[in-house]
């Protein structure tokens, strides 16, 4: 069997706040295989988003190891992590997180430019057309609806053809119809590019579309199951 694309070993995360240290994750060990679609579910505050952030190197684990494509993210500095994401990862957030001073096209082209793609803007335009925003490429985020902004965010994440797509409740801020459309696009992009997808969600129907579902509770893996089970 091939090596897992993501491998977490005994990962802990403690965050320091005004009220003192809070333990978010308690010794999580988890593998994600190449091409797999993994759903992370669990109640609010169970640590789903934090786990996703650790997988993306957006947060640094307090203990344990996070390997992505065989490389130890916990040993990398901020810049090395950024370079790793640039080459291998795409992230989609619940609140879109587009840069408000950039047009849709510029938002999508930026990661391609950072990766040194000579045809960044052409590819970005193609990507926007693929998510149905061919006519909105010069619009700023403030001129778009939530659903449109999330499509731009999807295009931005998918444009560099990442090995791993991380999505943190991508439909959480959208109505049913828009959420449905975004999920179609997300799974469509994943199928098209063959990326590994890790998805944080509260929605059972979304979890049901994943190859495997991991349920977190109080910072621990409570259960794992094939989606069909």
């Amino acid at each position: 069997m091939a090596d897992p694309i993501l491998s977490l070993t005994d990962v802990t995360l403690t965050l320091k706040g005004n009220a003192g240290a809070v333990e978010i994750l308690h010794g999580i060990s988890l593998d994600v295989n190449q091409g797999e679609t993994l759903g992370l579910i669990g109640p609010s505050g169970s640590g789903k988003s934090s786990l996703l952030m650790l997988m993306g190197g957006l947060e640094r684990a307090t203990g344990g190891k996070v390997l992505a494509l065989g490389q130890d993210l916990t040993a990398m500095n901020e810049d090395a992590l950024a370079r790793f994401r640039r080459n291998h990862m795409g992230v989609v957030f619940q609140s879109f997180h587009l840069i408000p001073t950039m047009t849709a096209l510029e938002n999508v082209a930026t990661p391609l430019e950072l990766a040194g793609a000579p045809d960044a803007f052409d590819r970005a335009e193609d990507e926007l057309r693929a998510v149905g925003l061919g006519t909105r490429i010069d619009h700023y985020p403030s001129q778009m609806s939530g659903g449109e902004q999330q499509r731009v965010a999807l295009a931005r994440a998918a444009a560099p053809r990442p090995d791993i797509l991380l999505a943190d409740e991508p439909t959480g801020n959208l109505d049913g119809a828009n959420g449905e459309a975004i999920m179609e696009l997300l799974f469509g992009l994943r199928d098209k590019h063959g990326s590994t997808l890790v998805l944080v969600t509260h929605a059972p129907e979304l979890a049901a579309r994943c190859d495997r579902v991991v349920r977190l509770s109080d910072g621990r893996v409570e259960a794992q199951a094939k989606a069909a089970e």
């Binding site: 957006l58 901020e78 950024a82 370079r83 994401r85 640039r86 992230v91 997180h97 930026t110 990661p111």
Partner: peptide, 19 residues
């Protein structure tokens, strides 16, 4: 505040601190 956000997003999509 806006810079903090931009820096976070840029880092997420692969920008190093120098950039």
């Amino acid at each position: 505040r806006a810079r903090v956000f931009e820096a976070a997003v840029l880092k997420t999509i692969g920008a190093v601190r120098g950039q």
